[in-house]
Amino acid sequence: MEVRTIKVFTTVDNINLHTQVVDMSMTYGQQFGPTYLDGADVTKIKPHNSHEGKTFYVLPNDDTLRVEAFEYYHTTDPSFLGRYMSALNHTKKWKYPQVNGLTSIKWADNNCYLATALLTLQQIELKFNPPALQDAYYRARAGEAANFCALILAYCNKTVGELGDVRETMSYLFQHANLDSCKRVLNVVCKTCGQQQTTLKGVEAVMYMGTLSYEQFKKGVQIPCTCGKQATKYLVQQESPFVMMSAPPAQYELKHGTFTCASEYTGNYQCGHYKHITSKETLYCIDGALLTKSSEYKGPITDVFYKENSYTTTIK
């Protein structure tokens, strides 16, 4: 009895394709271990004539594949690729409408935090270190965002349907971005203890939790000093293409032309909904596939993004 075979390709990165001759009487799992086709788990399936010449994702289970996976995804987590594939199996079914010149995501599976993050990423200057993220990001900007969303979920250790947080998501993504040249110098002034300067680099240099107003941050924000008295913390120097200011959701007025974009969060910790506000020729609110415009805006804002380049204080 002759062994019926077909020729397929296996890959971990969709760049390096490895030619395989597979036995049609055995499952993919018996031949390769966990195997995925377009995100779908085909591990328990036997090869079919229609699979001839198709590319299958496999887990990096030998040295060659491990090197290829690390170079593309910059992670050695053995569960990463499987999590990416199972997320992709959902995100490829989502709709990605162009809204006001940006790629958004039609609401499904509690994905409003991903839509808000995706919209924000198209408006701030950011370059990702893992080629996987950078490639998928370019495709997302062009309207094909399924891979990018699935990668975000995998890097953030999230599953489809789980509630997510924009600030946490951005923080994970910033860790995989090139923020080497970003720098922030802060000064804390206390009447009792004097003053202390701190220099922050990388992710810490672009994120701040405690106030939404970048102007206020430049002037000074009140913080408790270690001595128990009130101290003032203010920005001395900022070198970065953008800054992200966050605070627990509270009524906040966004003035046209003073910011790049913002995240609105309605609801409580267990259950809520994100919308995205962007400042173009007027203010726009993007909620999944829905767009509304207004000249002014007041609502429960939790993150505001500002364009920056270089700032030095005039406070002496």
Rank of each mutant, 00 (worst) to 15 (best):
N111M: 03
L163K: 09
Y311E: 06
L254W: 02
G82E: 12
A262F: 00
Y73H: 02
C261Y: 00
T10E: 07
T120N: 14
E281G: 06
L37E: 10
R184P: 01
P224I: 13
G53T: 09
H51E: 12
K219P: 02
S263L: 05
L102P: 03
G228L: 02
E162F: 04
F217R: 01
P130M: 04
Q195T: 11
K93N: 13
G288K: 00
H90G: 14
E68M: 09
W94V: 03
T159C: 11
R139P: 05
M245W: 00
A231T: 03
N129I: 09
L65P: 06
L118P: 03
T103E: 02
V21M: 15
K298T: 09
M170D: 00
V166C: 06
T169Q: 03
D109V: 04
V304R: 00
A132L: 05
V160H: 05
T91Q: 03
Q238R: 01
A289D: 11
V236I: 08
W107D: 02
G228I: 01
H48S: 10
T232I: 12
A231S: 07
K233P: 01
A250K: 11
F217Y: 06
Y137K: 03
T5M: 11
V22E: 03
Q222H: 15
R4K: 14
T258V: 07
I105Q: 04
S240Y: 00
K46Y: 14
T11Y: 03
I286Y: 07
P78H: 13
I124V: 07
K218C: 06
L173S: 01
H74Y: 06
T116W: 02
Y306G: 00
F70Y: 07
K293M: 12
K233E: 14
R167A: 06
K229W: 11
K54M: 13
P60R: 08
T278F: 10
Y284A: 09
S50F: 14
G257P: 01
Y311D: 07
V243D: 00
A262D: 00
T258S: 12
D165F: 05
E215F: 05
T19K: 09
H256M: 12
Y57C: 12
Y214A: 02
T278L: 12
S246C: 06
H176L: 13
D180E: 10
R139K: 11
M24E: 11
L59S: 14
Q196E: 14
K46R: 13
T10K: 14
S246E: 01
L17A: 07
P224A: 13
L114G: 02
N89V: 15
D62H: 09
V221S: 05
P131N: 04
M85G: 05
S263Q: 00
E264W: 01
G257L: 04
E308W: 06
Y208G: 07
Y214F: 09
H51F: 06
M209F: 15
T19P: 12
Y274I: 03
A145N: 04
L59P: 07
N268S: 15
G39I: 08
V189C: 10
S295W: 12
S79H: 12
L126H: 03
S246M: 00
Y137E: 05
Q175K: 14
Q251W: 14
Y73G: 02
T11E: 06
D38N: 12
H51T: 04
D109P: 04
G164M: 02
G29T: 05
I286V: 07
K127A: 12
V3F: 12
M26P: 06
T232P: 01
S181L: 09
Y113L: 04
A40C: 10
V166G: 02
K54S: 11
C271K: 10
V12T: 13
Y265F: 12
L235R: 00
N110E: 03
V3N: 14
Y306C: 01
S246R: 01
P47L: 04
Y214E: 03
V21Q: 10
I223W: 08
T116C: 13
A140R: 02
S246W: 00
A250V: 11
H90A: 15
K158R: 07
T192C: 11
N61W: 14
V236R: 05
S295K: 09
T302C: 07
Q175V: 07
L254R: 00
E239M: 13
C156R: 02
H90V: 14
L88T: 05
R184T: 02
K280E: 08
T43K: 10
A136D: 03
R184Q: 06
K293Y: 07
T198P: 04
C261T: 01
S50E: 14
D135F: 09
T312P: 09
E125L: 04
N187D: 08
G202I: 00
F9V: 09
T35I: 07
G299H: 01
P249M: 02
R4L: 11
D62T: 13
L59E: 13
S50I: 15
G299K: 01
V304N: 03
D38W: 11
N89E: 13
P34T: 12
I105M: 03
L291S: 14
Y96M: 03
S295Q: 11
K95W: 08
Q122K: 02
A177S: 09
T75P: 04
L81E: 06
S25P: 06
T169M: 10
N16V: 07
C182R: 04
G143R: 03
G82T: 13
F305C: 05
Q216D: 13
Q175S: 10
Y208V: 09
T27Q: 15
S263G: 01
T199R: 10
E215I: 06
E253V: 14
E52Q: 13
T103F: 08
K191F: 07
G164I: 02
S213V: 03
L102A: 04
V188K: 14
V203C: 11
G143A: 05
S79C: 07
V189S: 14
I223M: 12
S310K: 08
A205F: 01
E168P: 01
Q122H: 02
K218F: 04
T226R: 14
T292V: 10
K44V: 14
D41Q: 15
G53M: 15
K219N: 11
T5A: 13
G210F: 05
V189T: 13
P97V: 14
N14S: 10
T199Y: 08
R83H: 11
Y155D: 04
A136G: 11
A140V: 13
V160Y: 04
K92H: 07
